[in-house]
Simulated assay, not measured.
Amino acid sequence: MVKTLPKILYHGVKIFLRSLKKSISEEIELSNQAARMRYDQNKSHAISETAEQMTLNEAKLVLHVDRCSPEEMEERFLHLFEVNKKENGGSFYLQSKVVRAKERIELEMRNGLVNVTNG
């Protein structure tokens, strides 16, 4: 009995520590998954909020778009984005305005509130 008691305690503690380690690592993984989900939700929500802060008229003025095809709008966006790169002597502020304008028009197009086509 004296010899088996330490063995029982040793194995009991070993099993307990293994299960504790597994529980902690599972909890950390679940926490990381929840954090990633919150980050993804906040990221998509932040994009739509910043796009919604710009009016549709302002977005059209920034991209010089009134009635044009989506391809032409994309072409204008790419041109303005490239021209306003810091490496080209442009402004990060203007570059971000161009991005927000594109997001706003795309948001309106997805919601079916604006039709940016020839006509």
Rank of each mutant, 00 (worst) to 15 (best):
V62E: 03
Y93F: 11
I105G: 01
R67D: 14
V65H: 11
S19M: 11
V98D: 01
R104D: 00
R36L: 12
L63I: 06
V65D: 08
G89M: 06
M54F: 06
M109G: 02
E82R: 07
Q33N: 11
M37D: 06
Q41C: 03
E52T: 10
M37V: 15
V114W: 04
I24Y: 10
R104Q: 04
E27F: 06
L61F: 06
I28E: 11
E49P: 00
L56R: 09
G89H: 07
E27Q: 12
N57E: 14
Y93K: 12
L113H: 13
E49G: 01
L63T: 05
H64S: 12
R110V: 02
E106S: 06
Y93G: 03
L94N: 11
S69A: 14
M109R: 11
M54E: 02
L30S: 12
E72N: 03
L56I: 11
C68K: 10
V99Q: 05
S44D: 07
S23Y: 12
R100T: 01
V62W: 02
N84I: 03
P70I: 10
L61V: 05
S23N: 06
S48H: 08
M73D: 02
E108R: 04
K85Q: 15
E108S: 08
E87Q: 13
M109F: 01
N111V: 01
L56C: 09
R110M: 07
A59E: 01
H79C: 04
